[in-house]
């Protein structure tokens, strides 16, 4: 496939994504995998794969983003996931707003101007509450597979409040609830609510500018979207490829490099 003019790679804590764009910046190719412990090897494999598709990587700029962006030696440039997400999301929707990205290690809320620029952003504080890890940890106690969590939570109306937002405290709270025979689905719903409340606090800090956009792997969980709408009273819009926004944004930066005629390694 020869339409690929520029590449973006997003090396995240849970997944690694690579996106190719054509001259127009349209996403025309991608790969997504779970992150492996040896990031460098995985990136090398990704690029091998890419070479098979495009022939040679010469003259195709690559921009890296995500936590492991510094580890991608082949990259022409690195840009933070904040700026890349904003770029990718703006390309998809063509308007500004507030982007919420709940990741495994990190959550962030980004205010995007009508022109697609980052106005302000916040990230979760040091503890894991407010990130995907909060749900994962506590849900593993409940023996519910990750991809079923959201549906389970939405299957009930009854919800038990989880007051602790500390992951350690919440876990012991969950254990006690199970011991008291509270239905698992109600606990799950409460856990989701707790995570969303924490996220809404971050949204308020940035200042909510509609529409609310959601990206990241957590979008696959339907409860997140529903409860976020409930808590904010705003409609949430989802991109077509929620997990690829960062990589797409990175590829768009790569395309700019190409168009600027900058040196490509």
């Amino acid at each position: 496939m020869s339409g690929i003019k520029a590449l973006g790679i997003d090396v995240g804590s849970t997944t690694v994504k690579i996106v190719g764009v054509d001259t127009e910046g349209k996403m025309c190719w991608h790969i997504l995998e779970q992150a492996e412990p040896r990031v460098e090897d995985q990136v090398e494999r990704f690029l091998d794969h890419t070479r098979q598709v495009v022939g040679t990587l010469d003259r195709i700029p690559l921009v890296a983003t995500g936590y492991g962006r510094g580890l991608v030696e082949q990259a022409t440039r690195s840009v933070t996931e904040i700026t890349c997400h904003a770029k990718g999301v703006y390309r998809e929707f063509g308007h500004g707003g507030t982007l919420v990205d709940i990741g495994g290690q990190d959550s962030k809320v980004i205010g995007i101007s009508p022109e697609g620029k980052v106005l302000d952003f916040v990230m979760n504080d040091k503890c894991a509450a407010g990130t995907g890890r909060f749900l994962e940890n506590t849900a593993s106690r409940l023996k519910v597979p990750l991809d079923r969590m959201g549906d389970e939570a939405l299957s009930v109306v009854e919800e038990v409040p989880i007051s602790s937002t500390c992951t350690v405290f919440a876990e012991s709270e969950v254990i006690s609830l199970i011991a008291h025979g509270v239905p698992v689905a109600s606990i799950l719903r409460g856990l989701h609510r707790s995570l969303i409340k924490r996220t809404v606090a971050m949204i308020r800090t940035v200042g909510i500018v509609p529409p609310l956009m959601l990206s990241g792997g957590v979008v696959l969980n339907p409860a997140i979207c529903r409860l976020l709408e409930e808590e904010t009273g705003e409609k949430v819009v989802l991109p077509r490829y929620p997990q690829l926004m960062g990589a797409h944004g990175a590829a768009l930066f790569a395309l700019e490099i190409l168009n600027d005629g900058s040196q490509v390694s």
Binding site: S163, T165, C166, F169
Partner: peptide
């Protein structure tokens, strides 16, 4: 702040 109170603990 009840969020710093873990009843179980």
């Amino acid at each position: 702040d009840p969020r710093s109170f873990s009843e179980e603990q």
